[in-house]
C-alpha cells in the first residue's frame, strides 16, 4: 500500500504534496485494499442485514410496530456495522505498523484523518443503500416518495458517524480491549446525531405533517460541522508518538 502512494507522487516530487492530495492518496489506497479483498463490505452487509432480521424476530409479527420503528432499526443497524468498519480500517494500519510508514512518508496526519473518514463514509452510505430494500421487505415501509430526502439524511448521518468514529477508532486500535473501547467511546457521543438521523428518517418514511425535516437535517449538519472540525484538528495528536 505504501507503493501505491509512492508511485503516485512522493518519490518523484521534491516538495511535500498538499493536504488534500495526500488525503486523496490515503483514500485511494484504502479503497484499493478494500477492492482487492472485498472482505469488509461483505461482512458489513451480512452483519447489518442480520441485525435488521434480529430486530424483526425480537418484536414478532407486529407489522405496524415494525413499520413505526423502522427508522430506528435502520440506524441501529448502520451504527453497529460502523463499529466493525471503523475498527477494520485501522486494523490494517496497526497490523504491519503501516501507520508508522504513512507518517514517515511523510503524510500529514490530518490527511490520514480526511482520507480515512471520507473513505468510511461511502462505505456506510453504500451499506445503507443495501439495507433500504431489506427495510421495505421486512418492515413494509414505503420509500419511493421521499427517496431524495432519504439519500440526504443517510449521507449526513453516515458522515456524522465517521468523523468521531475515525478518531476514536485510531485511539481504540492502539489500546487494550479495543473492541470494547470503541463502542464505549463512540455510542454515547453519537446519541444526538443518531437521534436527529432517526427523527429525520422517520419523517421521510412516515410523512412530515409539521415540515420539521429541514430543521432535523439542519441539526444534523450542525453536529457534522462540530464533529468534523474537532476531529480534523485533534487527529494529529492521536497518532503522534
Amino acid at each position: 500500500m505504501i507503493d501505491a502512494s509512492a508511485e503516485r507522487g512522493i518519490a518523484f516530487r521534491p516538495q511535500p504534496i498538499g493536504l488534500f492530495h495526500s488525503a486523496a492518496i490515503v483514500f485511494w489506497k484504502d479503497l484499493l485494499i478494500e477492492w482487492r479483498t472485498r472482505a469488509r463490505l461483505n461482512a458489513l452487509i451480512f452483519f447489518a442485514v442480520a441485525t435488521l432480521l434480529l430486530f424483526s424476530f425480537a418484536l414478532g409479527p407486529d407489522t405496524a410496530l415494525l413499520r413505526q420503528n423502522a427508522a430506528g432499526y435502520l440506524w441501529l443497524g448502520i451504527l453497529f456495522a460502523s463499529v466493525l468498519s471503523l475498527g477494520e480500517s485501522f486494523r490494517v494500519e496497526t497490523e504491519n505498523s503501516s501507520m508508522d510508514g504513512l507518517k514517515l512518508a511523510p503524510v500529514d496526519a490530518r490527511a490520514v484523518f480526511l482520507g480515512k473518514a471520507v473513505g468510511n463514509g461511502p462505505m456506510l452510505f453504500a451499506l445503507s443503500f443495501v439495507l433500504l430494500p431489506i427495510l421495505v421487505a421486512l418492515y413494509d415501509v414505503s420509500i419511493a416518495g421521499g427517496l431524495a430526502a432519504l439519500v440526504g439524511v443517510l449521507a449526513l448521518g453516515c458522515a456524522a458517524i465517521t468523523a468521531p468514529g475515525t478518531i476514536y477508532a485510531a485511539i481504540a486500535s492502539n489500546a487494550r480491549a479495543r473492541d470494547v473501547l470503541l463502542p464505549l467511546l463512540l455510542f454515547p457521543l453519537l446519541v444526538p446525531a443518531l437521534l436527529a438521523s432517526v427523527k429525520a428518517s422517520a419523517l421521510v418514511l412516515q410523512g412530515d405533517p409539521m415540515h420539521q425535516l429541514g430543521s432535523w437535517l439542519g441539526l444534523l449538519a450542525g453536529f457534522n460541522l462540530i464533529y468534523w472540525g474537532l476531529g480534523f484538528t485533534l487527529f494529529p495528536r492521536v497518532v503522534e508518538d
Binding site: 439542519g218 450542525g222 453536529f223 460541522l225 462540530i226 464533529y227 468534523w228 472540525g229
Partner: peptide
C-alpha cells in the same frame, strides 16, 4: 477547522431550530 466546529455549535444555538 475550529471555526467550522464553532459555526456548527452556533448554528445549533442560533439557527432557530
Amino acid at each position: 477547522a475550529l471555526a467550522i466546529a464553532g459555526a456548527g455549535l452556533a448554528y445549533i444555538a442560533f439557527g432557530n431550530l
